[in-house]
Structures are given as C-alpha cells and as structure tokens.
C-alpha cells in the first residue's frame, strides 16, 4: 500500500510552478497579511484581492475548480464568527425569538461575518496554490531562504519523508482493525464494544506507531552516522533569486500596500 493522496503538489510547468519558491512563499505571506490588515467591509479591496488570487490560479494551470473545492475545507470555521451577527452593534436588521431569548441581528454584524469569511476564503486559496505548485523539497528551500534555522528545516524534511512511511503503517493498522470488526449474525448483540474499549484499541495503535517511530529513529540515526553525519546540518548554499523575480515580488508588495492604503483611507 502506498499513500500518494497526501502530497498536495501537482507537477506542472506553469509560470507559477517555475517561480523561485522563496518568492512564492514571501508573496503568499504578503498577500495573506494584506488580507488580514484590510478593515472589515472594505469590499472594493476584497474584490481586488479576489481578482489577484484568481489570476494566480489561472496562471498556475491548476484549475480554478480544484482550488475552490479545496478552499471549502476551511469553511466550518466560519461558524465561530456567526455570533457576531447578533453581538456587533449597529443598524437593526431583524430580530427573532428562540424560547426565552430574542436575537437582534445588525447590518454591521453581518458585514463583519462576511468580511471575515471572505478574507479567510481568499487567503486559503493563495495557500493552496503555494502548496500545489511547489514541491516539498522546494518548500524546504524556501523555509531556509526566509531564515528558518537549518536544524529545524532538517527535522521538517525528515518528518515529511517519514510521514508517508508512518501513514502507510497507520492505514495498515486501521485496515487490520476493520478486517476484524465483524458482527455476529445473532440479533440484538451490541457490535463494536464500548466507546472506552474502542478508544483504548485506537490508543494502542497510536502507541504502536510511536514505538515504531522510536525504533526507526534509531535505525535512521545509524544510517545517517554511517554516512558521516555529525549533528551539524550541512547543505549547499542556496542559489540566487533571479533579478526579474525580485522586481516582480517588489511590485506585488507595492500593489498590496496601495490597496491597503486606499481601503483604509476610504473605509476608515
């Protein structure tokens, strides 16, 4: 068995695929920071942001449908912002009663909820494009590029390598459990044991995974030491970012700053 579905990277040769991973990472962060800094209700600016992310999606040749579908994953969290409709003061929109309580919705509350949902939606889209157009080794390089310590980058790199091995193991355990979770043909018997028992079985599997993790950690260490590893993480120096891409990144950040400035002046 082999987990492929885990890797979000989509191989390709689009403009976005070919950008330097450090440029992509910084651009994505700048975009998300911009979205986060925009005031609530700055709809003109939101539309611009949406236009930017949609353009990037087009240029990435991932298919807008793919990105939008994945972006839905973040939606459940919007629930957390729903109470704002009733707690943000402002123009009365409607009231309704539920038992002893009366709820008063305000226009400002609705606007804030929609603003948050929108910011979150465009941000997650940009993050999806980053992960889908940048292979993990390149993401590691970008992490080094923005100054994350080599030691941490090395740990994350090794982690990613073994996620696939250990997720395989986890799925094998789950499958083995499923294969033995039968029901008797007799009617009226409770199937599957108590919740506590089920949780303990699952816990046993988690313990099993960790135990194998420890053992594998020792073996990997031996394999690393056998090739001269001495605790210091070494790697080639990073290549230069092409000058044109620097300019492109600078221009994009300038654009974000303009959008911010305008929306704060206008909405604020």
């Amino acid at each position: 068995m082999h987990v492929h579905f885990l890797d979000p990277f989509h191989n390709g040769t689009s403009l976005i695929h070919r950008l330097d991973p450090r440029v992509k990472l910084v651009f994505t962060l700048a975009y998300i920071v911009t979205a986060s800094l925009l005031p609530f209700g700055a709809w003109a600016a939101y539309v611009l942001l949406l236009a930017i992310v949609l353009s990037v999606e087009l240029a990435s040749e991932l298919g807008i449908g793919y990105v939008l579908r994945r972006a839905l994953l973040a939606t459940p969290f919007v629930l957390a912002a729903v109470p704002l409709i009733f707690t943000v003061p402002g123009t009365l929109l409607f009231t309704f009663s539920l038992g002893a309580w009366t709820f008063t919705a305000s226009l400002e509350g609705v606007e804030r909820l929609l603003s948050i949902a929108f910011k979150s939606w465009v941000s997650v889209q940009m993050a999806i494009v980053l992960a889908a157009t940048t292979s993990f080794p390149n993401l590691l390089m970008a992490m080094r590029g923005i100054g994350i310590p080599r030691l941490l980058v090395a740990i994350v790199g090794l982690m990613w390598r073994y996620i696939f091995v250990l997720v395989d193991q986890a799925l094998r355990l789950l499958r083995a459990r499923a294969a033995r979770s039968g029901a008797t043909p007799e009617m009226g018997r409770r199937v599957g044991g108590s919740i506590v028992w089920r949780a303990q079985t699952t816990g046993g599997m988690a313990g099993n995974l960790l135990m194998r993790g420890f053992e594998r950690g020792d073996r990997i260490y031996a394999a690393m030491a056998a090739r001269g590893y001495d605790g210091e993480v070494r790697a080639f120096p990073l290549p230069q970012v092409p000058l044109t891409q620097w300019f492109g990144l600078g221009a994009a950040i300038f654009l974000f700053a303009l959008i911010l400035l305008f929306s704060i002046l206008i909405v604020g």
């Binding site: 390598r161 090739r227 001269g228």
Partner: peptide, 24 residues
C-alpha cells in the same frame, strides 16, 4: 541497511545520494 526506508531519509533521491559526499 536492510530497510531502504531507513537508508533513504532525505526528501529527494539526489539529497540522499549527496548526503555522504557533502559530509566528506
């Protein structure tokens, strides 16, 4: 080592084969 998943601990094949020479 016996299990190649222990021997190959780097993200790419290149990184793994380069590991020893880099440490040399």
């Amino acid at each position: 080592f016996q299990d190649p998943d222990d021997q190959l601990f780097s993200p790419t094949v290149f990184d793994d084969v380069a590991f020893g020479p880099i440490y040399q």
